[in-house]
Amino acid sequence: MTTDTLKLILEDTDGTQLETSCTRVAVVWQGKEIWIQHDGRGQLLIGVDVEEGDAEYANLLVRPLATNLMSLQLEMEPADVEGDDDDHVHGPGCNH
């Protein structure tokens, strides 16, 4: 049985843990909401909310650091506002 529920463990600075669950969770990082959700097939989806009128796209860069650790970096890239096409459909080849 697959589920799209995430089991979360929140930990305070003193080590106290609180367990809860949700469908999606976000972390506000560098002023952007980084959303994490389970896709129901054993994978995590991670995305950054883009708001109407944003002048930059947010790129997430993941790098392995150790066997059980990775680095996640948020990098902003200017949006091509002049070349925007209102009829554009986002797909795997559009790099958005």
Rank of each mutant, 00 (worst) to 15 (best):
residue 35 W to G: 00
residue 48 V to L: 07
residue 82 E to A: 14
residue 51 E to C: 06
residue 49 D to R: 15
residue 77 E to Q: 15
residue 65 L to I: 02
residue 16 T to L: 08
residue 46 I to L: 15
residue 68 N to Y: 11
residue 68 N to T: 05
residue 44 L to C: 13
residue 83 G to Y: 05
residue 52 E to F: 11
residue 62 V to A: 10
residue 44 L to N: 06
residue 26 A to P: 00
residue 79 A to R: 02
residue 43 Q to C: 11
residue 50 V to Q: 09
residue 33 E to W: 04
residue 43 Q to V: 02
residue 85 D to W: 06
residue 88 H to M: 12
residue 95 N to D: 13
residue 81 V to G: 08
residue 43 Q to T: 05
residue 2 T to W: 06
residue 47 G to Q: 10
residue 10 L to S: 09
residue 49 D to C: 09
residue 54 D to E: 07
residue 64 P to L: 05
residue 76 M to N: 04
residue 36 I to L: 14
residue 21 S to K: 08
residue 21 S to R: 07
residue 90 H to T: 06
residue 57 Y to P: 00
residue 18 L to P: 01
residue 18 L to F: 03
residue 35 W to V: 11
residue 47 G to A: 12
residue 11 E to V: 13
residue 67 T to H: 11
residue 70 M to K: 05
residue 7 K to V: 10
residue 62 V to R: 12
residue 40 G to E: 03
residue 61 L to I: 13
residue 46 I to M: 14
residue 7 K to C: 04
residue 93 G to K: 06
residue 71 S to C: 05
residue 17 Q to P: 01
residue 4 D to G: 05
residue 56 E to C: 07
residue 76 M to T: 04
residue 41 R to H: 14
residue 16 T to H: 06
residue 56 E to W: 02
residue 93 G to Y: 10
residue 41 R to E: 15
residue 95 N to W: 05
residue 55 A to M: 04
residue 42 G to P: 00
residue 58 A to G: 15
residue 39 D to Y: 06
residue 47 G to N: 13
residue 23 T to N: 12
residue 39 D to C: 06
residue 64 P to S: 07
residue 34 I to Q: 02
residue 51 E to A: 09
residue 82 E to T: 02
residue 16 T to C: 01
residue 3 T to Q: 06
residue 82 E to Q: 13
residue 31 G to Y: 12
residue 1 M to Q: 09
residue 62 V to Q: 12
residue 35 W to L: 01
residue 57 Y to W: 09
residue 72 L to Q: 08
residue 74 L to T: 02
residue 24 R to F: 01
